[in-house]
Amino acid sequence: YFQGQLNAMAHQIQEMFPQVPYHLVLQDLQLTRSVEITTDNILEGRI
């Protein structure tokens, strides 16, 4: 994955969860590489 793709995914998640800091979303995406998994992590309070 290149950074631009991760940034696009992070923006997509931020639209759904504007209360979660962008850098935390991006940090999780770098591990998961998945909008779905990061979204689940937010919903389950891991982020």
Rank of each mutant, 00 (worst) to 15 (best):
1 Y>W: 14
1 Y>D: 14
1 Y>F: 13
1 Y>R: 10
2 F>K: 09
3 Q>P: 13
3 Q>V: 09
3 Q>D: 14
3 Q>S: 10
3 Q>I: 10
3 Q>N: 11
3 Q>R: 09
4 G>K: 14
4 G>R: 11
4 G>I: 14
4 G>N: 13
4 G>V: 12
4 G>M: 13
4 G>E: 15
5 Q>N: 12
5 Q>W: 15
5 Q>M: 14
5 Q>S: 12
6 L>F: 09
6 L>N: 02
6 L>K: 03
6 L>Y: 08
7 N>Q: 15
7 N>C: 12
7 N>S: 14
7 N>M: 15
7 N>V: 14
7 N>K: 14
8 A>Q: 13
8 A>Y: 11
8 A>K: 10
8 A>N: 10
8 A>G: 07
8 A>M: 13
8 A>R: 05
8 A>I: 13
9 M>L: 13
9 M>Q: 07
9 M>Y: 09
9 M>G: 03
9 M>P: 01
9 M>T: 05
10 A>G: 05
10 A>F: 05
10 A>H: 02
10 A>P: 00
10 A>Y: 05
10 A>T: 05
10 A>C: 04
11 H>R: 13
11 H>E: 10
11 H>F: 11
11 H>Q: 13
11 H>N: 10
11 H>S: 13
12 Q>V: 12
12 Q>K: 13
12 Q>G: 07
12 Q>W: 10
12 Q>I: 13
12 Q>R: 12
12 Q>L: 12
12 Q>Y: 12
13 I>M: 05
13 I>C: 03
13 I>W: 01
13 I>Y: 00
13 I>T: 01
13 I>Q: 00
13 I>N: 00
13 I>S: 00
14 Q>K: 13
14 Q>Y: 13
14 Q>S: 13
14 Q>H: 15
14 Q>E: 05
14 Q>V: 14
14 Q>A: 12
14 Q>N: 10
15 E>I: 13
15 E>L: 15
15 E>F: 10
15 E>W: 08
15 E>S: 14
15 E>Q: 14
15 E>T: 12
16 M>A: 09
16 M>T: 07
16 M>Y: 07
16 M>S: 07
16 M>K: 13
17 F>M: 03
17 F>L: 02
17 F>H: 05
17 F>R: 00
18 P>W: 03
18 P>G: 03
18 P>R: 04
18 P>Y: 03
18 P>I: 03
18 P>M: 04
19 Q>E: 13
19 Q>K: 12
19 Q>V: 06
19 Q>I: 06
19 Q>T: 11
19 Q>M: 12
19 Q>A: 10
20 V>D: 01
20 V>K: 01
20 V>F: 09
21 P>N: 07
21 P>Q: 05
21 P>H: 05
21 P>E: 08
21 P>K: 06
21 P>I: 06
21 P>R: 04
21 P>G: 04
21 P>L: 06
22 Y>A: 06
22 Y>R: 06
22 Y>P: 06
22 Y>K: 06
23 H>G: 07
23 H>S: 09
23 H>F: 10
23 H>E: 12
23 H>Y: 13
23 H>D: 11
23 H>N: 10
24 L>N: 05
24 L>Y: 06
24 L>D: 05
24 L>W: 09
24 L>H: 06
24 L>T: 07
24 L>I: 10
25 V>N: 01
25 V>K: 00
25 V>F: 03
25 V>L: 11
25 V>S: 00
25 V>W: 01
25 V>P: 00
25 V>M: 04
25 V>T: 02
25 V>A: 05
26 L>F: 09
26 L>T: 03
26 L>G: 00
26 L>E: 04
26 L>N: 01
27 Q>F: 10
27 Q>M: 12
27 Q>D: 08
27 Q>T: 08
27 Q>L: 11
27 Q>I: 10
27 Q>Y: 11
27 Q>R: 11
28 D>N: 06
28 D>V: 04
28 D>Y: 03
28 D>F: 04
28 D>W: 04
28 D>A: 04
29 L>S: 01
29 L>F: 03
29 L>N: 00
29 L>C: 03
29 L>H: 01
30 Q>S: 10
30 Q>P: 00
30 Q>Y: 13
30 Q>K: 13
30 Q>W: 14
30 Q>F: 12
30 Q>D: 07
30 Q>E: 14
30 Q>N: 09
31 L>G: 07
31 L>P: 01
31 L>Y: 11
31 L>H: 11
32 T>I: 01
32 T>N: 03
32 T>Y: 05
32 T>H: 06
32 T>C: 04
32 T>L: 02
32 T>K: 00
33 R>G: 15
33 R>V: 07
33 R>Y: 13
33 R>P: 03
33 R>L: 15
33 R>K: 14
33 R>A: 09
33 R>Q: 15
33 R>N: 14
33 R>W: 15
34 S>M: 02
34 S>D: 08
34 S>H: 03
34 S>K: 04
35 V>Y: 07
35 V>E: 05
35 V>I: 09
35 V>M: 10
35 V>A: 09
36 E>S: 11
36 E>L: 10
36 E>F: 08
36 E>C: 10
36 E>I: 09
36 E>Y: 09
36 E>N: 08
37 I>Y: 07
37 I>L: 11
37 I>A: 09
37 I>F: 07
37 I>V: 12
37 I>K: 14
37 I>S: 08
38 T>A: 00
38 T>H: 02
38 T>I: 01
38 T>R: 00
38 T>L: 02
38 T>N: 00
38 T>K: 00
39 T>N: 03
39 T>Y: 07
39 T>C: 12
39 T>P: 00
39 T>S: 09
39 T>H: 05
40 D>M: 15
40 D>K: 15
40 D>Q: 15
40 D>E: 14
40 D>Y: 15
40 D>N: 15
40 D>A: 15
41 N>F: 02
41 N>I: 02
41 N>K: 06
41 N>V: 05
41 N>C: 06
41 N>D: 01
41 N>A: 03
41 N>Q: 01
42 I>H: 01
42 I>C: 06
42 I>Q: 00
42 I>E: 01
42 I>T: 01
42 I>S: 01
42 I>L: 07
42 I>K: 00
43 L>S: 08
43 L>A: 07
43 L>V: 09
43 L>C: 08
43 L>W: 06
43 L>P: 00
43 L>G: 03
43 L>F: 06
44 E>L: 12
44 E>R: 14
44 E>D: 09
44 E>F: 11
44 E>V: 08
44 E>W: 11
45 G>C: 06
45 G>Y: 05
45 G>E: 05
45 G>D: 05
45 G>I: 04
45 G>S: 05
45 G>Q: 06
45 G>V: 04
46 R>C: 06
46 R>W: 07
46 R>E: 03
46 R>A: 06
46 R>P: 02
47 I>P: 03
47 I>C: 05
47 I>T: 04
